[in-house]
Simulated assay, not measured.
Amino acid sequence: MPERNNEFGKFGARGTKGHEFVARQLDDLAGFIATPIHQRRGLLARLHYLTRTDHARQAAREAGLTVTDRTLKAWLDGRRSPSRKNLERIETAYRTVRRQNVARYLLARLNRRGRGTRVEFHPLNQSQVPRPHQRYVEFRTLNVRRWDRIVSAWTAGDDARLDDVWVNDAVIDLGSEWGQYEYVSNIGFAA
């Protein structure tokens, strides 16, 4: 039974841990605001999202945006601008609240009433690996039916837990070769 890679890249292989691609794909599906926070339009869009309802304000406070209502109003009116530190807090709070808001919807789309979602595993790049050390790794697909723990770890923003859950709930279902797909060049799925 294969285990996790301890010395990945020792012979020149290149790839990224699969859970990082999963997190990126889930972020794309969540539909974050595209305009950067440093532009006035992006800042206002995030602030409106975080202050639209009492529930959103409470979630923003729990996510780390702990400024007074007076300061928020000054930012919204354009009388003051947030500091770099507060811009980071706004962005973090926005992403956290957005993930919490779309998690249930994404989970329903990905699970598809037990049918799951087809995931494509694109193998790692071995072009820099000397010929005797190269492995035969091919493009694989897998239908992932259990997304609950994966989406929960993504929502919490817990990278280590997402890595464990991704390997234990999805990658291990590839069979005895699952260790070859811990690092990949891409993971694709759509919901």
Score class of each variant (00 low, 15 high):
residue 44 L to H: 03
residue 36 P to R: 05
residue 94 Y to Q: 11
residue 96 T to S: 12
residue 89 R to S: 02
residue 32 F to E: 11
residue 105 Y to T: 13
residue 100 Q to R: 06
residue 72 L to Q: 08
residue 28 D to N: 14
residue 29 L to T: 07
residue 75 W to T: 00
residue 50 L to D: 01
residue 36 P to L: 05
residue 81 S to M: 13
residue 85 K to Y: 01
residue 42 G to S: 00
residue 103 A to N: 12
residue 59 A to M: 12
residue 105 Y to A: 15
residue 89 R to G: 01
residue 64 G to M: 06
residue 102 V to P: 06
residue 46 R to S: 03
residue 56 A to P: 08
residue 69 D to M: 09
residue 57 R to M: 08
residue 104 R to K: 07
residue 60 A to W: 00
residue 76 L to M: 15
residue 92 T to V: 08
residue 31 G to W: 11
residue 37 I to Q: 09
residue 105 Y to C: 12
residue 84 R to I: 00
residue 31 G to A: 15
residue 34 A to C: 12
residue 102 V to C: 13
residue 35 T to P: 02
residue 82 P to R: 01
residue 66 T to N: 08
residue 38 H to V: 15
residue 54 D to T: 13
residue 30 A to Q: 08
residue 74 A to H: 15
residue 69 D to W: 10
residue 78 G to P: 06
residue 62 E to M: 14
residue 53 T to W: 09
residue 78 G to Q: 05
residue 72 L to A: 04
residue 97 V to C: 07
residue 104 R to M: 12
residue 65 L to V: 15
residue 31 G to E: 09
residue 29 L to N: 07
residue 53 T to P: 04
residue 94 Y to K: 14
residue 107 L to F: 02
residue 47 L to C: 04
residue 88 E to N: 07
residue 40 R to Y: 04
residue 42 G to E: 00
residue 88 E to H: 02
residue 85 K to R: 14
residue 96 T to L: 09
residue 81 S to F: 09
residue 53 T to A: 13
residue 81 S to R: 07
residue 57 R to Q: 11
residue 69 D to Q: 13
residue 51 T to I: 05
residue 80 R to F: 12
residue 99 R to F: 00
residue 70 R to M: 07
residue 103 A to D: 09
residue 45 A to Q: 06
residue 102 V to R: 02
residue 107 L to C: 02
residue 60 A to I: 06
residue 98 R to C: 12
residue 52 R to L: 04
residue 47 L to S: 01
residue 108 A to C: 12
residue 92 T to Q: 05
residue 90 I to K: 00
residue 34 A to S: 11
residue 63 A to C: 03
residue 87 L to M: 11
residue 33 I to E: 12
residue 63 A to Y: 05
residue 96 T to P: 13
residue 81 S to W: 03
residue 67 V to E: 02
residue 53 T to M: 08
residue 61 R to D: 00
residue 72 L to Y: 03
residue 100 Q to F: 09
residue 60 A to D: 02
